[in-house]
Amino acid sequence: MKAAAFDYSRAASVEEACALLARHGPDARLIAGGQSLVPMMAMRLVRPAVLVDIQRIASLNEWRVEKDFLCISACVRQNVIEREAALSEAVPLLGKAIRWIGHVQTRNRGTVGGSLAHADPSAELPLVVATLGAQCIVRSFRGERTIGSESFFTGPMSTALQADECLVEIRLPIWGAGRIGTSFEEVAIRHGDFALVAVAAQVALNAHGVCERAALGVGGAAPAPVAFPDLSRHLVGTQLDDAAMQAIADTLAKRVAPMSDLHASAAYRRHLAHTLTLRTLRAARDEALTRS
């Protein structure tokens, strides 16, 4: 379990990283926290000829709260989400999701951008990004572009990133003040494992408890995390009563496309998607109701 030989370059800037990617093409891989890439290299499942280390690029280690967006640069460590309250205050769903991600040790190394670029269909951060409809800012020597989360994740471990592109920032929408409730529920075999299924939900209620806005997403039940904006819209105008949620869960469970593997059958995953959708929506609603 030793990686095949590779060259290593530490980029001092995004421009330098992009230049290296442009020069080496698909033979190069970016490395940030290395929590997924290094084990895959050790098992020789991945064999980059060149490793471009972007961890020390200062501009990739920042985050800021703007009026409508929480902007997190790609190399911000996952543990920043749990240690800096401002991030969860801006996007409460992040705070709910973070404790499900691996373990303290992996969160100390793992980065936000790394998790998104790795795009495990069961991973938590991609699910949050997909659920909320975040924007992924991508740079290459050709310039910068923004990819919406709905087209960023293209399948298991695959994204819309081109070989010469570097994910530099994620912009998560801030819903503003008000009666917002969020919930993130997951079933994994052990705490810290990749989810068999995870469900994320965020709702906003008006003063009468009527849902004004909703976001709902499922991880682990399809080749990529899936948001259900159409189902979420069906919740708008309801009191998020059990009948409304049951109808949503029933439809969602029919629409997911889970896989079978050693640990869970497709039927079990579908069942979990249904159960967790109900639980997540209820918990988000109940939390929103506590807000004034």
């Binding site: 075999i189 052990r190 705490h191 810290g192 494992d193 990749f194 050693l262």
Partner: peptide, 16 residues
């Protein structure tokens, strides 16, 4: 062998 790594051969941790 389909459980040849600790991703698939699951041992209880302090959480379990």
């Amino acid at each position: 062998l389909s459980s040849g790594t600790f991703m698939d051969y699951l041992m209880p941790s302090a959480h379990e």
